[in-house]
Amino acid sequence: MGKPNRVLMALRGLILGLGCAAVILPFVAVVSTSLATQQEVTANGGFVFWVREPTLASYQAILSGGVVTRALAVSILITAVGSLLSLVCTAALAYALSRPGSLGSRPILLAVLFTMLFSPGMIPMYLVVKQLGLLDNLLALVLPVLINAFNVIVMREFFLDIPAELTESARIDGANDLTILARIVLPLSKAVIAVIGLFYAVGYWNAFFSALLYISSPEKWPLQLVLRTYVVNETPMGVDDVGSGSDSLPPQLSIQMAILVISIVPILLVYPFLQKHFTKGLMIGAVKG
């Protein structure tokens, strides 16, 4: 296919290289600074790009009780419970909608699809959550976003592609829909379930605005709100905000970066898996009206 133009190739490499550096270098600096001691932070006038004497003091301080530890527990709870509930409800709904001609499936499908076109608005949403008595309740971070229409559609498409011979022969053997879903459909859909579960999990982990809107007590804050307060707004952490033990705190900047690292690490842990599947898993789903 023609001769590669050297200047073009070099330019291409340069652009892609710069792009990758723009993503990687901040991470290196953030991790590095989170491991730095007060002397190193002072010597560098702030950021430590490459730490020489790494210490885990910042992590010890924020993980041995206090604001961050509590927020981490809240975030883990919301993410675990939320993703599980979301997956169960999404899979059940998607299965019910994947049996063509069943009672009510057409109007329900249209009702689900319509939610993608129109979002009801912040104020009415807030008032509904308030009326349900969910303000300052962690359930407010889960229930309103329990079902994502797009995920339902993707999963339904996946279920529709399962050969009918498999499900129908089980039906002839006397299996009901619940058995078919649990024994045949779900085991055949592990990949799509994993991907959609991870998408829900990332969504719950990253949720910031719903927490800002609905959660007022600081002891119920998830990690993203703590990040906003102590890292984005740079409210200094006091001795009381971290676990008991020491009178002197590690440098504020290191503490901030350690909070940042703690909130990024779970995403990085699931990322390879997500990346392996999202193109495969999600490209098969298309919106069908």
Partner: peptide
Amino acid sequence: LLLLLAAPGVVVVLLFHYVPLLGN
């Protein structure tokens, strides 16, 4: 049984999409 399976999702969609829509 299918309707029962759909029920939790349908309730969530009604409660957090259509009720707020009316709440406008």
